[in-house]
């Protein structure tokens, strides 16, 4: 029963092995890369593809609709949730300055990133705790940004 019989089985096992290989590269990248942001690329990225490959492989092998639907659901959840958690962690990582500045080629956020009003993980349209001062601060930042850019361009 556990033998590889058809072409489908060969494809499925190839998918499973490829997915497993991608999981290994995720581990290697996690260990080799220099800062949190690049490690997140390594940790979450080959896995989106790896998990998809493994789910497809397992679905081919299992041959039962019930299991196939559930694997489809897992793949869907993974595709929907992986970007959200990656974004939340990376945003906090950037604000906590877990970035090797000397390994960055370009940082376009830093030149305009003087945001002192929103600094945690709150959505940008969340009401600030002290609306008056926060608004004044935000407007002043925008003005400073514009002046900075004007200086830079002209």
């Amino acid at each position: 029963m556990n033998d590889v019989e058809t072409l489908g089985d060969v494809v499925a096992v190839a998918f499973l092995l490829l997915g497993a290989l991608l999981c290994l590269t995720a581990g290697i990248g996690l260990l080799r890369f220099p800062d949190v942001l690049t490690r997140m690329h390594a940790g979450t990225k080959p896995q989106v593809l790896g998990v998809l490959l493994i789910m497809v492989g397992a679905a081919i092998r299992l041959q039962g609709w019930s299991a196939t639907w559930m694997l489809l659901l897992v793949a869907l959840f993974q595709m929907l949730t992986a970007p959200v958690s990656a974004h939340m962690v990376s945003r906090v990582a950037y604000r906590r300055r877990h970035v090797r500045r000397d390994r960055l080629l370009v940082d376009e956020q830093r030149s305009t990133g003087k945001d002192r009003v929103y600094r945690g993980d709150e959505p940008a349209d969340a009401p600030p705790e002290e609306p008056g001062p926060a608004l004044a601060e935000s407007l002043r930042e925008d003005r400073e940004d514009r002046e900075d850019r004007g200086d830079g361009v002209r």
Binding site: L16, A20, A26, G57, A58, I60, L62, V74
Partner: peptide, 13 residues
């Protein structure tokens, strides 16, 4: 995620 992948590999193989 690797654990999940391992479970799926076991289920498949």
């Amino acid at each position: 995620v690797i654990i999940a992948a391992g479970l799926a590999v076991h289920a498949g193989l």
